[in-house]
């Protein structure tokens, strides 16, 4: 029950809207900045309204290599997409299989495998970055998509979530399937995967964001601009130096770097919220 206090309601809406506006401010400024020429930008404070150069700025960064990089934004976006999809798909695929083995089979060393996998939850890649770099270098994975993707798959978050979900699948379903003549692979394909659909979608959203937004690892492993990702490129083009920072290019690239993950989260919000809240448990 809530007290009906219209004044308080309006105050709540007012505060919320104020915060929404404040949250949008950086993006608004990025939008307006990306539509001016560099000269127009540097005439005073950043403009609050749009200029007329939006289209040409975006076409410019997308088609030609930028001044401070050896790659165009189109190339950067492609690299980010490959990495994000690779991480999301790879992580989900190996996690589905590993969690399946751990929940639905009994075999020697099962508990050991369980702990070997789940201990990885405790250490993010940032803490083991140097030796991981060395391993990647030894395996000849520097400046390659495989090198961008594989080390970031080596964590058990998704495995853990699938395990939690599998444990809630009624045991009688497995029994019925066995009586109906389904072996392990058939049960996985015909029963378990169709039942996991929303979980897979939720994890896909989270893992895609995780992959797209990676910073430290791609920064280390890509020395060739051909494999540079969008997020990592921003530092290079926005770093203060003797020349003026080309803010219109920086902001156009920044917006491009935000667009795919924000689009994913807005379109798939339902799955995302479910995935987040599930991962708490």
């Amino acid at each position: 029950m809530r007290y009906r206090r219209p004044a308080l309601d309006w105050l709540s809406h007012g505060l919320l809207l104020l915060c929404v506006v404040a949250f949008c401010l950086p993006v608004w400024m990025a939008l307006t900045a990306s539509t001016h020429t560099q000269t127009a930008l540097y005439t005073g404070t950043a403009p609050l309204w749009f200029g007329g150069e939006g289209l040409s700025n975006f076409i410019g960064v997308l088609t030609a290599p930028m001044d401070r990089l050896g790659a165009s934004a189109a190339r950067l976006l492609w690299n980010s997409t490959v990495m994000a999809l690779g991480i999301a798909v790879g992580k989900i695929a190996i996690s589905i299989l590993a969690a399946y083995a751990i929940v639905f089979f009994r075999f020697p060393l099962r508990r050991t495998c369980f702990w070997l996998i789940f201990i990885t939850l405790m250490l993010p890649i940032e803490v083991r970055i140097m030796p991981t770099y060395k391993v990647a270098a030894d395996l000849n994975l520097l400046n390659s998509y495989i090198g961008l993707i594989l080390p970031l798959i080596a964590s058990a978050t998704a495995t853990f979530l699938f395990r939690q979900f599998y444990l809630t699948v009624p045991n009688e379903l497995l029994e019925a399937a066995r009586v109906d003549g389904a072996g392990p692979w058939r049960f996985l394909r015909d029963i378990l995967l169709p039942l996991s659909k929303t979980n897979i979608a939720a994890l896909f959203v989270i893992m895609f964001l995780y992959g797209w937004n990676q910073y430290l690892w791609p920064l280390l492993i890509t020395t060739d601009d051909h494999y540079l990702t969008t997020v990592v490129s921003l530092k290079r083009i926005s770093a203060a130096s003797d020349e003026l920072i080309p803010w219109q290019e920086v902001m156009a690239t920044t917006l491009l770097a935000m667009l795919p993950p924000v689009a994913v989260i807005v379109v798939l919000q339902r799955f995302f919220v479910k995935g987040l809240v599930d991962s708490e448990k």
């Binding site: 190996i94 590993a98 075999f107 070997l116 391993v135």
Partner: peptide, 28 residues
């Protein structure tokens, strides 16, 4: 109930994850 009679299948299922974790987590 579990698939108790399958001895090799769980290892096939676990192999990709264990491999990636061993090379890019435990070794580093």
């Amino acid at each position: 109930t579990t698939f108790d009679n399958h001895r090799v299948t769980p290892w096939i299922l676990l192999a990709p994850q264990l491999l990636v974790v061993a090379v890019f987590f435990f070794w580093p």
